[in-house]
Design a protein around this nucleic acid. Sequence first.
DNA 1: AGCCAGGTTTAAT
DNA 2: ATTAAACATGGC
Length: 298
Amino acid sequence: MIIKITPKSPFNFELSAKIFSNGDPQIQRYEKGSYWQLIWLNNKLVLITVRSLGSVDKPELSVSLKPDNELNKKDNVIARKILTSIFNLDFDLRYFYEDRIMSKLTLKLCGLNSPTTPTFFEAIVSSIIEQQISLKATRSIETRMIKEFGDMLQLDGKTYYSFPTPETISNLEREDLRGSGLSFRKAEYVIGLSKSIEENNLDLNELKTKNTSEIISELLKIRGIGVWTAELAVIRGLHRLVALPADDIGLRKVVSHYYNNDKPVSADELRRIAKGWGKWSGLAAFYLVVADIMSIKI
DNA sequence: AGCCAGGTTTAAT
DNA sequence: ATTAAACATGGC
């Protein structure tokens, strides 16, 4: 099944899709103009593949869903919603581009939108795994975990994996996740989180509807989630771009590079600088991180 | 080889 | 109330 989506302009699909794509082709990958991701659609595992038919100024996406023998119109609508969320397609970047401080960077990265995980759960778990270790270390741990405990779909001779569900993780022992490279501590956090979801003590879908500060304060009650993790989770999982991980070492390094001649920046200084980004602080932080990854000079 | 990397909890002071 | 220790993997 093929559906078409028309994002708000400007939108640079290639740039937005590749920047945080998982390096493993069986999980989430951008290559030669195509982005793919295995997702749950009404209890059916479906591989979505996205290609661009348009340009940055006139974006147009073609989305293929496979296998499609069991898909109906409702699935179609949900798939559209999920993709709109993943690529933040409802978000009009032009407002952000009016920001004076970001103007140079936004010219170089025009059309880059901030990506979101297919589910909020995935963003929370990823953020927990990312605590204290490098992004590279995180990625290899996550890849092992997804391949071992995620659901699998074989299509056209290839194998794809989705992120493990709360149900699956809630039934694991901490030794299982330790095998993927999580610490015993983090394994406990992730399993505990999954169990409280499965036991209906935590409803992420309901939580999603609340305002950002409420969501963060709810997340903070969960064992294993501190301020940094909660902020990262709402940014990566819910497009709550107001949130800003001011204590984040990586972000502070990037800000020191672009705003302070590479001299170290404290969390408070970062907060002060971030005031200039207004309500787009989370997006500004994202742009800075991407600019750093791509070694962009301004 | 050893320390740091986009933290958090637990256990001592 | 504040501080220290433990923790996982990958990169340098």
